[in-house]
Structure formats: structure tokens, C-alpha cells
């Protein structure tokens, strides 16, 4: 299972506490994880990726294993530690504003 952490506002929207567990086909990619996330929690559609373009929203970042994956290809396999469930795929709201 893929572990995903969400920022507080998205956890509230989705009605979840803590991490989300997703069953994603091999090999998991940024795109397939987000597809599975939105399928399990339709309320998150449009909050992480734009409708239509499916582009990451400007103030959303993706991290895993101490790396910023935000600019990686959405079809690139995620690190093995994420695929194995050892490390979470982190969806983060960028620090901005006041």
C-alpha cells in the first residue's frame, strides 16, 4: 500500500485523520497515486491538480524520502521506499502568505 500524507485542510475535506493508504498498481507514479487518491476521495478533485490540465496547483508540492518531487515527470516511478510503503508520499501546501 502507498502511504500518502495530506495537509490539514485536505484531511478535513476528505474526512481523514493521519495518513491515507492507497492501493496503486505497479510501479506507482505521481500520476497514478494522485489518480487513486482522487478516486478514493472525489472531494479532493481540483484541490491538488487543476481540472482540465491536471497540472499541479502552484502552491502544492510533493515530497518523499527527503526529496522534492514536484518537478518530476508525473509518469516517473516513485522511489522504491514509497512503492514499498516504507516512506510516505507527502502532499504539502507551500509556505506562502500570512
Amino acid at each position: 500500500m502507498i502511504r500518502v500524507t495530506l495537509p490539514q485542510h485536505l484531511r478535513t475535506l476528505a474526512g481523514v485523520d493521519g495518513e491515507v493508504l492507497l492501493d496503486v498498481g505497479e510501479p506507482p507514479t505521481q500520476g497514478s497515486v494522485l489518480d487513486a487518491l482522487e478516486a478514493q476521495y472525489p472531494v479532493l478533485r481540483g484541490t491538488i491538480r487543476d481540472y482540465g490540465t491536471a497540472k499541479r496547483r502552484d502552491f502544492i508540492r510533493f515530497f518523499a524520502c527527503g526529496r522534492d518531487l514536484s518537478l518530476d515527470s508525473v509518469s516517473e516511478p516513485l522511489p522504491e521506499e514509497v512503492a514499498s510503503g516504507a516512506e510516505p508520499f507527502r502532499v504539502v501546501g507551500a509556505m506562502a502568505g500570512g
Partner: peptide, 27 residues
């Protein structure tokens, strides 16, 4: 709405006691 997370539409059918998210696909 939020600069981070985009647009959500909420609807209440009991005068604001409870709310549910509805469609947010504005294309």
C-alpha cells in the same frame, strides 16, 4: 476558496447546520 487548494462549493439543506461538498469543476 484558497490560493493553495482552489475552489470548493458547499451546500446545506438544513439552514447551515450541516454542509456537504458539491461540484467544483468550473471549466
Amino acid at each position: 476558496t484558497s490560493g493553495w487548494f482552489g475552489q470548493i462549493i458547499q451546500r446545506s439543506d438544513d439552514g447551515g447546520e450541516t454542509w456537504e461538498t458539491v461540484g467544483n469543476e468550473f471549466v
